[in-house]
């Protein structure tokens, strides 16, 4: 199978500077990737591990994608990489938030040195309208019927 070489490095005057910047960005991305992997193993708590993995996904992948843009320096890899960076910066916090919410819903205990659990306090507070579960629906499909619960008041009523 003969594939045409798609890109070649542009050997222009800025190649050295771009390679240097790409090296710095790549080193930063690799640092965050490795720190995320170490944090997934070493941190004592599921919530703190979610925190470490989220850093690994956003900052590590973004640094390496910026390095790819700077080194290859063509328009198609720049478009795809910017698309990947934007998607990752939107999607990864959402996924981490939902995973942490599911973990809190499953009542995974926190590390004993954790200072507070404000979500549990808000759930115990009758004046606060934090719903018990928007991700897990234990009652089954009757929750899909629209409940007219009046105006939703955020925070303390």
């Amino acid at each position: 199978m003969e594939l045409a070489p798609m890109v070649l490095a542009a050997d222009d005057a800025t190649a050295g500077v771009r390679d240097l910047l790409a090296t710095i960005s790549l080193a930063g991305g690799l640092f965050f990737m490795f720190v995320g992997a170490v944090g997934v193993v070493r941190l004592p708590d599921a919530y703190q591990r979610i925190h470490a993995a989220s850093k690994c996904t956003t900052l590590g992948l973004a640094g390496m994608l910026i390095a790819a843009i700077l080194h290859v320096w063509t328009l198609d890899i720049a478009g795809k990489a910017i698309m990947a960076i934007v998607f990752t910066f939107v999607a990864s916090p959402i996924g981490s938030h939902l995973l942490a919410k599911a973990a809190h819903h499953c009542k995974i205990e926190q590390w004993p040195g954790t200072l507070s659990d404000e979500l549990a306090q808000d759930k115990a507070d009758p004046n606060c309208s934090v719903s018990d579960d928007e991700i897990g629906v234990p009652e089954g499909p009757q929750r899909l019927v629209a409940q007219d619960s009046g105006p939703v008041h955020v925070g303390a009523a």
Binding site: T57, F87, S92, G95, L98, C106, I135, G136
Partner: peptide, 21 residues
């Protein structure tokens, strides 16, 4: 990246519906 996001969402839904981890 897209598959990781979708799988994380599906996994969180599964855990919330399961109720215990």
């Amino acid at each position: 990246g897209i598959l990781g996001f979708a799988s994380t969402l599906a996994f969180a839904q599964y855990l919330g519906r399961r109720g215990s981890a």
